[in-house]
Design a binder for these strands. Sequence first.
DNA 1: GTCTATAGGGAGATAGAC
DNA 2: GTCTATCTCCCTATAGAC
Lengths: 208, 208
Amino acid sequence: MARAKLVEKETQTSAPPNVARPEQILDVAARQFRARGYAAVSMRDIATEAGIRTPSLYYHFASKDDLVIAVMNRGIVVVREALTAAIDALPPGASDAHILTTAMRAHLRALHGLSDYTSANVRIFGQLPEPLRRANLAERRAYQAIWSGLLAPVCTHEPSLLQARVAFVIGALNATLEWVDPVRTDLEQLADCLSGVLLHGLLAKVRT
Amino acid sequence: MARAKLVEKETQTSAPPNVARPEQILDVAARQFRARGYAAVSMRDIATEAGIRTPSLYYHFASKDDLVIAVMNRGIVVVREALTAAIDALPPGASDAHILTTAMRAHLRALHGLSDYTSANVRIFGQLPEPLRRANLAERRAYQAIWSGLLAPVCTHEPSLLQARVAFVIGALNATLEWVDPVRTDLEQLADCLSGVLLHGLLAKVRT
DNA sequence: GTCTATAGGGAGATAGAC
DNA sequence: GTCTATCTCCCTATAGAC
């Protein structure tokens, strides 16, 4: 108790407005990685926008690798939590189609919404050297597992294609990053349109 | 005549096996850009795999920018020519659906086939600094214009969505680069499956 | 056409004062 | 926690011999 209070006081006096400095750095890094790619963004760029000097970054993150891994993993966590929250909020008797549409909309919203973490993840994953990509694979696989559960009911005729279907749907949704202008596009309308096309396509395939 | 012969002789004596050196450099550059991204590939990397020293590259290409622009533009030319050739080979009375399926298959084949130019283009376009991206826009727009012509017949109910549809289809096809294993996947089967899903989705949307 | 040698700049990262 | 100063490395690109 007394010990805890002491620590608290020290923290207050030594760093009043800097409590969330690591968070601020992560935000800046995600924004820049998303906009300009992994290799094109230097630690100096991030530090400058964060209002500090380059070496100060290394007090909070051991290396550029550490920083980019943190951004990448949060990018998947954010979209996974948004998706599960949206699905948990559905009424108990929702149809498979309704569930899938909800999932697609949640994914698109995370991708084009306020947070830059998910979009940064999608944009730069393919640019990362192999070891950094591997550091993000556990999160990615957990997220794909959720989608496998959602798509399995509409893929019963050919279970071996399930993983390909998961990759195709996520890939098609992610591809919107390359062409959708978030300012001039109504996100909800886009989500309905896209999920409609994908869902009809998958269902038609089932019936054929 | 006599002049032409003289030039020919000089070329033969001064560079016997190097007639296609620029082509070889482009091939190497496309392969490496595709595999590792734009910024991660240095001129030294390209020179080494081409079997020459770095400064020799600058005899054939004025700069890294020049080299990457050449790779990018060829990437679109290759897929455009493959697509138009496939469509021109169709019988005169082919249906819209048949034409679209053929186009999607041609695009996927160019993307996953022997040439690395188109896949390099798709992979690194988003990584390029703005001026380099702009240098590829003319080719890209010409290619999208072809797709606009193909998709217009199945988009008559809402012409304002045509450009979005074009971007969506090309984006969905390009996204296969991120997850398809060309060794373990039957490309023709994949093409039929994907084009089926996309086509059914678009057509179902038309009817709704 | 290709080479050796090198200029000039920017990257990631560390040392140590405050 | 943040700073100044600096190390080391590798990048693109050029000069000039062969």
